[in-house]
Design a protein around this nucleic acid. Structure first.
Lengths: 240, 240
DNA sequence: ACTTATGCAATAGTCATACTTATGGCCCAG
DNA sequence: CTGGGCCATAAGTATGACTATTGCATAAGT
């Protein structure tokens, strides 16, 4: 589909600073550059406009807006940022977002989660512990269970904003940890314990304990990322 | 501009449940219903698709997606929700989001804010105190200063995601408080003190104190909203 | 010299028509 | 009942024509 391709290409060029804020494009120039019809160009521009990456004005053209105006929490934009030279910075921002949201999500989950979700969280924490003890902290299975755990906490919070943003980005953040080797084959006992504590606290309705445990989990992850701070993950190849 | 009108109309109809998940539209039917060209319809649908409100498929049409799949933190969607029957629920979710984000933003602001921003925060807190003491807690001036204060905390955090989402929604949330009469003409001394404490903590680089103060501010706001829980604000007239 | 008004070209916005593409559902055969 | 093929469905794309708005350049006025 041509629309998706053009949208991604333009989105990346903007997100990566290749079309810096203030750049003025025209639909005619884009048609010529990409060899596509006006329909495809306009439709892609409409989406970029909706994301506040550009502003289209008659007689002027399509101007790239300043970065602070962009819809920072747009999932597509997050993806573009993660796929480009600003990946580390984006992961850092996402880590801070997790730091903010996950403890509150856990607190809410402790009061709102369904019985089924409570049981599922306990089961996931058990799974993480088992895999961790087997030295499989770097495995896909561990990663999947870790992602599922955090997603379920967000969903159980009953706040669909938490569920939405965390559901979308937690996979990327945790996978990034694994790729950076920040998820050791033998996870620290304390980390596994914290997942257990969090799951049991949510399951038992203890909001304070749930919040403290998740806060500690996220803090540990943040510290590990800081310790590895200079270990820069190379940006993915710049082709989307 | 026809595009914006159609987008808002369709967006609201979906957000308000008038086009419930599972509803299948076609571009032909929308053209006929709205008396607009295919171009306008397609461009609007593109944006809705990007927001994950709908999915367009050949041979099927344009299907409204289940609500959990929507981009919950899309600013436009938040606006549609706030303009419709789900306003209270949306304000509740936003309050929780504030609860999560603002304390962490304050913590980060304490370490990252520029000297100018630190001074500005202190000045805004002073302004709030002065207006509050004059019994102007319900005034537009107080509201403006309150919004500016919280926005600046978010911006000073140096996390553009915090700045983005709070910058967009804080005005709406705080204005809703004023409209509901939850912002008393004579604000409690403690509330004014907390803004001072937060501003001074950020200005002085005390992250713990900044976080505690902002947390207390947001918690006080949340409690006030709970106390007024049954005082339902009528949804705005359903015309955007 | 500065300010205001006017006109025109620039570029997006909209409409209509034609053609292409993929795909879901239905029908038929084994 | 299952699998394969075909066709109609509806989106996806292209193009030409026309409309609408507006920014900029120029001219006129003070």
């Amino acid at each position: 589909m041509l629309h998706a391709g053009l949208l991604d290409d333009l989105g990346c060029r903007i997100a990566w600073g290749r079309l810096p804020p203030g750049t003025v494009l025209t639909t005619a120039a884009l048609e010529a550059e990409y060899g596509l019809s006006r329909t495809v160009v306009r439709e892609a521009v409409r989406v970029l406009e909706a994301m506040r990456l550009v502003e289209a004005r008659r007689h002027v053209g399509i101007t790239v807006r300043p970065r602070p105006e962009w819809n920072a929490l747009d999932v597509r934009l997050i993806g573009w940022n993660l796929a480009g030279p600003g990946r580390q910075e984006e992961l850092g921002s996402l880590m801070e977002l997790r730091q903010a949201i996950e403890p509150v999500a856990a607190r809410l989950a402790a009061t709102r989660a369904s019985a089924g979700d409570r049981a599922e969280l306990v089961a996931l924490a058990s799974r993480l512990r088992d895999l961790g003890r087997q030295g499989l902290g770097e495995s896909q299975e561990y990663l999947t269970a870790d992602i599922d755990f955090h997603r379920l906490v967000a969903q159980s919070s009953g706040n669909y904003m938490f569920a939405g943003v965390l559901g979308e980005v937690i996979g990327e953040v945790l996978a990034g940890r694994t790729r950076l080797g920040l998820s050791p084959a033998l996870p620290a006992v304390e980390a596994l314990d914290l997942h257990q504590i969090a799951a049991l606290a949510i399951s038992g309705g203890d909001a304070d304990a749930a919040e403290r445990a998740i806060r500690a989990i996220v803090e540990e992850a943040r510290r590990a990322a800081l310790d590895a701070g200079a270990a820069t993950e190379p940006a993915p190849a710049a082709t989307v």
